[in-house]
């Protein structure tokens, strides 16, 4: 299937001379939840802003469902809803007024029933006549989502949707994303919280310093890059590791009561057998052992660190 969003060779150099995006290529599939994961300053907002028409690209092209964002900007933008990173709302108008404004701006005929449904899905219906400035931060974020959905977009961008949001709202937000996905909306969210990507996304793209380092199915990513960690709990604490174990990549932890060994599940051999043998030879006895899959967070940190 043709991707709904196609970014190719996209670069951005700000007037300051800063290169925020470096020849980014990215294709987003119809109906997926895609998480763009990267540390602060990686270029996530810049990428989204170019696609949505807020920032001028320096080079490269973007098409939305086949429509170029510059030459066919009307068709392209009609398909997109954007929830910005910052809580930027009007103050003196009501929730209903602001979402009606959003819908009108996108040239859509009035449809109170649809807007009512959007507000109800976001638990905003009882606030519809409230002035936005009277709402809490979490509620304002919902209003921003409602505004983005007001014109029935095919693609929804959520730029750091849960930054500075409490746990309850975060759960709600994930629920909303799931519901939207069921209705066929493609969702692209940026985050620097790994758990968010882990929880929500079908695919994850990792961006760092303006470059997409990799894009993969979340599960595949975790499997492929997943390193495991073996922790051995010792009977007697060690001051330092004996020289005979130098050949293994070990760490002493837990005040000398634990030895931690990292290994690659995809490798030819994991090295566990020889490690255990060498431990026995060195007379080190252990009470317990446990293995653990490294989280997306650890994968991510090691990826980004590897780049520096």
């Amino acid at each position: 299937m043709q991707p709904i969003l196609n970014v190719s060779g996209l670069s951005k150099t700000y007037d300051s001379g800063f290169e925020a995006l470096k020849k980014v290529d990215l294709a987003i599939n119809r109906g997926e939840v895609f998480a763009l994961l990267g540390p602060n300053g990686a270029g996530k907002t810049t990428l989204i802003s170019i696609i949505c028409g807020l920032v001028n690209p320096s080079a490269g092209s973007v098409t939305v469902d086949g429509n170029d964002i510059l030459s066919d900007y009307r068709a392209a933008r009609s398909l997109i809803g954007l929830v910005p990173q910052e809580l930027t709302t009007d103050a003196f108008v009501t929730v209903w007024q602001t979402i009606s404004f959003s819908r009108g701006l996108f040239g859509k005929r009035k449809n109170p029933d649809y807007l009512e449904k959007v507000l109800k899905d976001l638990s905003l219906w009882d606030k519809k006549d409230a002035q936005i400035m009277t709402l809490s931060g979490g509620m304002k974020r919902r209003v921003l989502i409602a505004k983005a959905l007001a014109h029935e977009p095919q693609i929804l961008f959520l730029d750091e949707p849960t930054a500075g949001v409490d746990v309850e709202l975060r759960r709600d937000m994930w629920e909303v994303v799931r519901k939207l996905q069921q209705t066929g909306v493609t969702i692209i969210l940026t985050t620097h919280y790994i758990e968010e990507a882990e929880e929500m996304a079908d695919r994850v793209g990792v961006i760092s310093r303006g470059e997409i380092i990799l894009v993969d199915e979340k599960a595949e990513l975790m499997r492929k890059l997943g390193r495991k960690e073996l922790t051995l709990h010792l009977h007697d604490p060690l001051d330092s590791l004996p020289a005979s174990l130098n050949g293994h990549d070990l760490e002493l932890a837990g005040e000398g009561y634990e030895i931690v060994y990292h290994y690659d599940t995809q490798g030819e051999r994991t090295g566990i057998t020889s490690l255990l043998k060498d431990l026995g030879d060195a007379g080190i006895r252990f009470r317990d052992l446990q293995t653990k899959q490294s989280s997306l967070e650890e994968i991510f940190v090691s990826l980004v660190r590897g780049r520096k």
Binding site: L54, L82, G107
Partner: peptide, 13 residues
Amino acid sequence: FVGTVYEILSAPI
């Protein structure tokens, strides 16, 4: 000033 201009700029107008 308040940032709501993002919506105007991202609209098909």
